[in-house]
Design a protein around this nucleic acid. Sequence first.
RNA 1: GGCGGCGUAGCUCAGUUGGUCAGAGCACACGGCUCAUAAUCGUGUGGUCGUCGGUUCGAGUCCGACCGCCGCUACCA
Length: 505
Amino acid sequence: MSETSPDSFYITTPIYYVNGTPHVGTAYTMVVADTLARWNRLWGRDTFFLTGTDEHGLKVSQVAQDNNMTPKQWVDLMSTRFIDAWKDLGISYDRFIRTTEPEHYRTVQSFLSKIYENGFIYKDLYTGLYCVACEAYYNESELVQGVNCPVHLRPVTEMVEENYFFRLSAFQDPLKKWYEDFPEAVTPSTRRNEALGFILQGLEDISITRTSIDWGVPVPWDNEHVFYVWYDALINYLTAIGYDSDQGVFDKYWPHVHHLLGKDILRFHCVWWPAMCMAAGIDPPNKLIVHGWLLVGGEKISKSSGITVDPLEIANEYGIDAMRYYLLKETHLGSDGDFSIEGMVSTYNSDIANNLGNLLQRCLALVVSKLDGVTPACPLQPPEVFKFDQRVDQTIRFWESFQPTGALETLMELLRGANIYLEQKEPWKSSENEYVGNVIGAVLELLRVVSLLLLPAMPESSKKVLSRLGVDTTVNLREELTFGRYKGGAVIERSAPLFPRLEVE
RNA sequence: GGCGGCGUAGCUCAGUUGGUCAGAGCACACGGCUCAUAAUCGUGUGGUCGUCGGUUCGAGUCCGACCGCCGCUACCA
């Protein structure tokens, strides 16, 4: 639960490393971010949704060389895989940032120069056991059989390098105080505890530059060095909002940012990043939303294990909104989730085909058979069984506190109430137009409001329902959620169900 | 080893500061209805709320021990 800034909303996803490919796990992150962005736009906030690709690092330059390309040519090619995937999935980002953009170079140099000037960066020697494939140093205790990298099972090499170091140790107390002052900054709280625990055990300085490669952002005060990939990557969150180029935009969105991230990159975002911000003299991000992993059959998605699911295939086969709904409804934001086609089809059929789709269909059938095919206006007050105001307020609270699962479940409760109401009133047995019109009007009104509140999760499907009802979707949501606004008058013809049940292929 | 979390109906999970707290959804069974997409409505599953103790008039709800599972414990996007 957290308050959101009143009139602007800035949300980011991690930027994806170009050597990877979009899979259902990254699609999950994007769907969540997209849904939160859509909610805030509908709620009338000035919303900025950022994603992009991380394009530096040794591995990129190596792979580029293997493919007889320059690193730049390679990342130009690879970044399009993400751009295309998000386009096909209808992700409504406002800006796709690439860390190889000149604007990003300037921001990284400006930001880190500031930290340098503030005295939190110094030069020293670093000695460590290094795995080239990982681009990472390991402790002896982490190695397999004492010599091999635990990821690649290949020998590591001892490297001595002159590096610039970031004085992370200086921020142990400030970070501790920050976590105490802003207990809501990291959600869920177990992740906050994890970050705080890490901080409390003592922080060491960290190396932030490399001399062994040149595919990176040059260190402005020492051109022998480039910044290590992680240090330029995080700064993308500032580049995109004019950190050193547009103070007005920057002030609007910072520090009221919502960083969405997976639990595997918690430390970078919840320890290093706030410290870097403090060192540069800006406020740390005010919200870090840590999500879990999407598992497949209980296993982590990874290429090496052969467990990988292509979100575009799912979307093509079953529809984007079916996938979105399943990801949002069945995986509590913050917990791990399990993805399966069977689960997706089952959830969609229960909630969307049966509960929502069938409710709409039975109403429209009655409009055709009893009301000359014209939808009636709604009554002034909602029937008791709807628990309308209570549930609508609850849904809003869930959306405002980043709990898609709760929001969607509450919408299902509203729909169940409407189905019960129809059973109680039995409009199909009546021949009085006024009676039938009142009953159907009340349910159509509920469907109007539910569809509006469902827009963030299932934009296309919700629009179809609203279109059927003759409701404009470009309205300000805040003014459209009170009962009694539906005027009716939409002409209905007998037609096939809008949301037919899915079958497992 | 250290720190933290979890273990509630077949499945996924809710259960504020202890006293209708033994629940929801899905699945399953039976019944109703037939406006509707094998839909929808109603009822049901006798779950030792991981185990054993303790505090209390009373504990999933607090304390202790134990069993099982998991996360973090530094430079992998």
